[in-house]
Write a protein that binds this DNA or RNA. Structure first.
Lengths: 147, 147
DNA sequence: TAAATTATATCAGTTATTTATATAAATGTC
DNA sequence: GACATTTATATAAATAACTGATATAATTTA
């Protein structure tokens, strides 16, 4: 088991460092719709899964219940989300993203893709191919991370 | 030029989506030293490059001058950074990370690497190899993004 | 030398977060 | 079914974190 662990450990550290650096860059790329980290994160999560309960958002976003309640109230005020009582549980609230909220995420994503595209153009064809080859594995890694 | 653009565009969109998902997961992995996004980002930036001027941090972190000044004052209060006048410019302040501040970043990184390692173990050897093969290209992409 | 620009501190207000408290709905126990 | 416990969320008070505005001093430019 040990040789396998050593190989994995070496790849992981390098991978993590590269990923860290790319994250640092990509996360700041969009110049539009600059909202707070948690706001963008909530909208992003809701764009993937909607509606969600407050309690679910508290778990995914790792903030306190109070913070999430107040943030969602503000987002509702600004038209980015809407809140409805959960018909299956009288205590709960369902939060869904509005088209306006979705547009925030979509427009930022579009700009980021455009800018990453420009960087990609400056890679060699071999480099681009190696990234494309790793894409299924990266996608799989994300799936594992969501389990 | 067009066929090349189309190929690049296809890869970029898929890559961006996969990256987005991985970012969402990785950024929340560490369970220790949970500080605010900008706080962690400032410490991370200072761990790569130290010392930096306030004005440089304002640019890299994309917050207002006032926000950065106040944040750095709080970080200094908490022992995570230290401030010194810049000997080459009487108006400027140099900010450097303290060992305590560096420990925040290092310990979170260590935990993240450990957890990514666990996910990696669940990939096939082929999947791991494809990611390792793409690593130089990803690293290069990061360099391009820092230009 | 004076004007313009740059660098940063501070203030006042809003947003964003925490802890604490409260209320009601749902679930568990007997 | 009654009561205890847990769950879900709203609200209050305080601090952190952000913005725009203002101020001061150092540096650069004309």
């Amino acid at each position: 088991m040990e040789p396998k662990t050593n190989i994995t450990e070496l790849n992981v550290s390098d991978f993590a460092m590269a990923f860290e650096e790319l994250t640092r860059i990509f996360i700041r790329m969009p110049s539009i719709e600059k909202l707070s980290f948690t706001t963008l994160s909530v909208l992003h999560t809701l764009s993937l899964r909607s509606p969600m309960r407050l309690s679910e958002l508290i778990a995914t976003e790792q903030v306190t219940q109070s913070a999430m309640t107040q943030l969602v109230i503000r987002l509702e005020r600004d038209g980015l989300v809407e809140r409805r009582p959960d018909p299956s549980d009288g205590r709960a609230v369902l939060v869904r993203i509005t088209p306006q909220g979705a547009k925030v995420i979509d427009s930022r994503r579009t700009e980021r893709i455009m800018q990453i595209g420009k960087l990609m153009e400056r890679l060699t064809p071999e480099e681009r191919t190696s990234i494309a080859s790793a894409l299924p594995a990266l996608t799989r890694l994300a799936e594992l991370g969501n389990d």
